[in-house]
């Protein structure tokens, strides 16, 4: 089931505020993984939560300290879409 980058972002936002107990004010589309102090363990746990919610395998591969939440959400959204739809999402 393809999920839009906006919907993935909302899910990431909610997960970071509830499960990870981060202050909502810090969670912005341009906030980076490094700024939020999400270490490799936190990213791995986030990937497990997102995989479960979205029904696809989400990995933390390619995510670095400078990746923004926007970029992260877009990458996860691509993973939820069949190949053709992913291209369409990229074009958006």
């Amino acid at each position: 089931m393809p999920t839009s980058p906006e919907a993935v972002y909302r899910l990431v936002h909610d997960t970071l505020t509830t499960k990870f107990e981060l202050p909502a004010a810090e969670i912005r589309p341009d906030a980076t993984i490094g700024e939020l102090e999400l270490d490799s363990l936190a990213l791995a746990e986030l990937a497990v939560v997102l995989s479960e919610e979205l029904g696809v395998e989400v990995t933390e591969e390619g995510v670095t300290r400078t990746t923004t939440l926007d970029e992260f959400a877009a990458g996860v959204a691509r993973a939820t879409a069949p190949a053709g739809d992913a291209a369409a999402l990229d074009a958006q």
């Binding site: 363990l41 791995a44 746990e45 497990v48 995989s51 479960e52 395998e57």
Partner: peptide
């Protein structure tokens, strides 16, 4: 195994 939390041991 993919559903096992990486936080399990810590």
């Amino acid at each position: 195994p993919a559903a096992v939390s990486p936080l399990t041991l810590p």
